[in-house]
């Protein structure tokens, strides 16, 4: 649970919007909160802070679309 919260906090930083915390099931790409650049920031930060290395080609926008699903996917990669 803590891990998920940490990820969501990180996402809120990257998206510069607290809506991520309020609604963790929001589609980040549809809402225009996250784009390719944000995705990379996320992957770089995840690697630096948590030591999780996710290949770019693994980041499928259909599966990594909401804060919750991103957190779950990352938990899988841990």
């Amino acid at each position: 649970m803590e891990f998920i919260n940490e990820i969501i906090t990180l996402l809120a930083e990257i998206c510069q919007d607290d809506i991520v915390k309020e609604n963790p099931d929001i589609d980040l790409f549809d809402a225009g909160l996250l784009d390719s650049f944000g995705t990379i920031e996320l992957l770089v930060q995840v690697e630096e802070r948590f030591g999780i290395m996710v290949p770019i080609s693994e980041f499928d926008r259909d599966l990594w679309n909401t804060p919750n699903s991103i957190a779950l996917q990352l938990a899988d990669w841990k």
Partner: peptide, 22 residues
């Protein structure tokens, strides 16, 4: 192009921290 050029390029620059300005 997004996945194999842009994202990889950005990832590479950010990781190496060559340019700070996002």
């Amino acid at each position: 192009f997004r996945d194999f050029v842009y994202m990889r390029f950005v990832f590479w620059i950010m990781k190496k921290k060559w340019i700070k300005n996002r």
